[in-house]
Amino acid sequence: MTTTVTRRPTVAVWKFASCDGCQLTILDCEDEFLSIVGAIDIAYFPEATRAERGGPYDLSIVEGSITTVHDAERIHDIRAKSKALITIGACATAGGIQALKNWADVDEFAKIVYAHPEYIRSLSTSTPISDHVTVDFELRGCPISKHQLIDVIDAFVHGRKPNTPTHTVCVECKLRGTTCVMVAHDTPCMGPITQAGCGALCPAFNRGCYGCFGPSESPNIEALREAWHEIGVDDPHLVQALRTFNAYAPEFKEASETYA
């Protein structure tokens, strides 16, 4: 098999404030892993190998959000030595679950959690990478989808557009033939305002969508609020549902502040 790829692009994988789940998705690509390492040259990926090579890199894959002064500087350095930069996961694309601190008093948290809070150097906010540097592509999800990640890497290698639809989870329910849990069972579901990518995992198991992939391309959150009221879910519960992994995604943030 001949391919058009002559030199494998060098790739670095970086971690910021996150749980590591998204970068572990790369290692979860068991069946496809040999194809991946055949197509890209992994130059820096501490989670996978101790061998490290310095930049510049053709592609940086960044996981996690910016929560410290040090990280706010480090991301600029990474950007400077990366031809392309892709962020992966809700932390990197929206600030993650830790962005809940954006509505709270971080010093107060530190006092409760740490014996010596004076050693803690944390910003008062958790923000997405795109708030700090130019990002070439954002791959959503908490965690990201393995299939979408492979597609994005493949798209990068071949210079094509990734197949990452921005429509709702509802489309994925219909593609797999899953009955609408909101209509049939009065289950509050974030699907109508959430971007696809998970394959409608929760509705397929008779649960409402939790919004792990963040806002869809044109979410009508006020209309969802009306629909949730109809099935007996009040605003405090809607605000809780909006403030999870993608709480600081602009559309979810604005809505949760409006209804809080």
Partner: peptide, 11 residues
């Protein structure tokens, strides 16, 4: 104002 853009009707 009421439409969710969810696509259910079409699918």
């Amino acid at each position: 104002e009421r439409c969710l853009n969810c696509t259910n009707c079409t699918l």
